[in-house]
Simulated scan of single mutants.
Amino acid sequence: MSVTPLAPYHFPRKAQRTRCVTIGSSDSSGGAGIQGDLKAFASAGAYGASVVVGVMAQNTTGISAAAQIDTTLVEQQLKAVLDDVGADGLKVGTVISPQLVWTLVDRLVWLDEIPVVVDPVMVTTAGNVLGGDEEAVVAVREGLLPLAWVATPNLAEARCLTGLGADVSAARLAEELVELGAKAALITDAFPDEPEVRDWLFDGKEHHEIRGTRESSPCDHGAGCAHSALLTVFLARGMELVEAAHRAHELVRLAIRRGTADIGAGRHPVDVFGTDAAW
């Protein structure tokens, strides 16, 4: 599908505080999605704004219902935020409708000076498949990936987007995501069956492995959202990608360890506060 950029938004002057915008869906339990992103932004000292594209009836055990926001209202939210608040970094999360994807692409394609993190959420921690529809996968692959300064899928999502099989290495998956248009690719928990957590980053030129202890805590609801949101903040502040990826990895590990074991009956939410993320 061809993309025709619309007229640029009228960004306000540069603010002293880092401003990050998340585009995604609401998690009614507050652990992931828009709510999780805003918490992560705040934990790192950034001002967070949001564009809600969907609403999930969601808790720590899974998703029972979902509804999409009208594309016109999505456009109006985006214009309202960017015209007045502005943005130093932008994250795109759960957008499962191909129509919504292309609506966003039309309006974000010109934002080449602002770090854009694309977190193609298709499989939740609880195992819910959000983006299995092939048309939606194609829209993310052909529309959103070329806008990404860095794409942050987990291993299952990377395979889904690339169409490559289980026998393909994380390094090759990351290279393929870059070949599809992303400037860089960070596959989170690229080796889920190993005792150590290993993220795999390909920055377009070199490969980087990011290692950390795998926490035994069941408090990992929203971990992926927090990871990409923190990465957005650090890139918005001008941090180099490799350093930003290492820092986001470590802070999410601590957020899982701290956790909120008293919240919910399923996979409890991460706790991003108190992880020393603020600058």
Rank of each mutant, 00 (worst) to 15 (best):
Asp112Tyr: 03
Pro120Cys: 08
Leu82Thr: 09
Ile69Lys: 13
Asp83Glu: 15
Leu147Asp: 05
Val109Met: 08
Val117Gly: 02
Asp84Tyr: 13
Ala80Asn: 13
Gln99Trp: 00
Leu73Val: 14
Gly127Tyr: 02
Ala80Lys: 08
Val123Tyr: 00
Gly143Ile: 07
Glu113Ala: 14
Val116Phe: 07
Ala67Trp: 14
Val137Cys: 09
Met122Gln: 08
Val117Met: 07
Glu157Lys: 01
Leu90His: 05
Val129Pro: 07
Pro98Gly: 07
Gly127Arg: 01
Gln77Glu: 12
Ala87Cys: 14
Val92Leu: 15
Val109Ser: 11
Leu100Glu: 05
Thr60Glu: 01
Val101Arg: 08
Gly89Asp: 09
Leu155Gly: 05
Val109Arg: 08
Thr72Gln: 14
Arg141Ile: 10
Asp119Cys: 00
Thr125Ile: 06
Ala139Lys: 11
Leu155Asn: 04
Val95Ser: 00
Glu135Phe: 09
Gly143Met: 10
Thr94Lys: 12
Thr152Cys: 07
Leu147Ile: 06
Gly127Asn: 03
Val118Lys: 00
Gly86His: 12
Val105Phe: 09
Val85His: 12
Arg159Gly: 01
Ile96Gly: 02
Leu147Asn: 03
Cys160Asn: 00
Pro115Gln: 13
Ala158His: 02
Thr61Asn: 10
Leu78Lys: 06
Leu108Cys: 15
Val92Cys: 12
Leu161Phe: 02
Glu75Trp: 10
Pro98Trp: 09
Asp106Asn: 14
Asn154Leu: 02
Gln68Tyr: 06
Val129Trp: 02
Val140Asn: 04
Trp149Ala: 06
Thr60Gly: 04
Val74Ile: 11
Arg107Cys: 11
Ala156Trp: 13
Gln68Arg: 15
Leu104Asp: 04
Glu135Ala: 15
Gly131Tyr: 04
Arg141Leu: 05
Trp149Leu: 07
Asp84His: 08
Gln99Met: 08
Trp102Met: 15
Thr103Ile: 09
Gln99Ser: 14
Arg141Gln: 12
Leu108Asp: 06
Thr71Ile: 13
Leu82Val: 10
Ala156Val: 14
Asp106Val: 14
Glu157Val: 02
Val138Asn: 04
Val118Leu: 00
Val117Gln: 00
Ala148Thr: 07
Ala66Asp: 06
Asp88Lys: 11
Ala139Glu: 07
Gly89Pro: 10
Ala136Asn: 10
Val123Asn: 05
Pro120Glu: 01
Asp133Met: 06
Trp149Lys: 09
Pro153Ala: 03
Ala80Thr: 15
Thr103Lys: 10
Leu161Ala: 00
Val105Tyr: 03
Val140Gln: 07
Lys91Pro: 13
Val137Gly: 05
Val137Trp: 08
Asn128Gly: 07
Gly86Tyr: 06
Leu130Gln: 03
Ala126Lys: 06
Val123Met: 09
Gln99Gly: 15
Ile114Gln: 11
Ala65Gly: 14
Val150Thr: 02
Val74Met: 01
Arg159Trp: 00
Val117Asn: 03
Pro146His: 13
Trp102Ile: 11
Val95His: 05
Val138Gly: 03
Ala158Ser: 03
Gln68Thr: 13
Glu157Ile: 04
Thr152Phe: 05
Leu90Glu: 02
Ala148Asn: 02
Val140Ala: 09
Val118Cys: 01
Ile96Pro: 03
Lys91Asn: 11
Ile96Asn: 00
Leu78Thr: 07
Val101Leu: 12
Gly132Asn: 05
Glu135Gln: 14
Ala158Phe: 01
Gly62Trp: 01
Glu135Leu: 11
Met122Val: 01
Ala65Val: 12
Gly89Lys: 07
Val109Glu: 05
Ala158Arg: 05
Val95Thr: 04
